[in-house]
């Protein structure tokens, strides 16, 4: 199993930390992992993205130009990365702020109303965990048990009290994800 993914959105949406949780959870699952962020001017201009690879084998290139999956959280990122999803690959997006939804016919497209749900849950900070829950529903590459362990590992102890809330958000994400197109 090798899953090569890109997570992209605005700075502050929790893009990099979502990637970090996936990577940590991968380690808990005895997988090889790589996490490669955008850094510098891109990030300072407001958009952030991270490439995450989870694999059973030694990871060759941490830098990719084509992805098995893309998690897209704003229009700029959709414009930039929709074309880089491998044919037959998967794109998950949050429609909040999206004017031109994905249009490719050769990939699986899923939608999650993450922003809306986070507001309804009265906690915008769990937005990324809702989206992560949705992603793991479509692509069960990691067990929830290992994600829980990954959270324990990646969060400082003083935030451990927030883990149950994050897990609830992930469960919510698993419930609300919608398939828009499957190939």
């Amino acid at each position: 199993m090798t899953e090569e993914m890109i997570i992209a959105g605005f700075g502050g949406q929790g893009v990099l930390s979502m990637g970090k949780i996936i990577a940590y959870s991968g380690i808990m699952d005895n997988k090889e992992v790589a996490w490669f962020p955008s850094y510098g001017p891109e990030m300072r201009g407001g958009t952030a993205n991270v490439t995450v690879i989870v694999s059973d084998e030694r990871i060759s290139s941490p830098v990719l130009h084509q992805y098995d999956s893309a998690i897209i959280l704003n229009q700029q990122s959709l414009d930039k990365f929709e074309k880089d999803v491998k044919p037959g690959g998967t794109l998950l997006y949050d429609p909040h702020g999206i004017v031109h939804p994905p249009s490719r016919k050769d990939i699986n497209i899923y939608r999650v109303l993450g922003t809306k749900t986070a507001v309804e849950m009265e906690n915008p900070k769990v937005f990324n965990m809702i989206v992560l829950g949705s992603f793991l529903k479509i692509k069960p590459i990691l067990s929830l048990e290992n994600v829980k362990k990954g959270l324990e590992k990646s969060l400082p102890v003083r935030y451990h009290k927030l883990i149950p809330l994050n897990l609830t958000a992930m469960e919510k994400g698993q419930e609300i994800v919608e398939a828009m197109q499957t190939v």
Binding site: E32, V33, Y39, I59
Partner: peptide, 10 residues
């Protein structure tokens, strides 16, 4: 280089 400096691995 910057890629190896910035990326996280096991």
């Amino acid at each position: 280089d910057g890629a190896l400096g910035q990326m996280m691995e096991k």
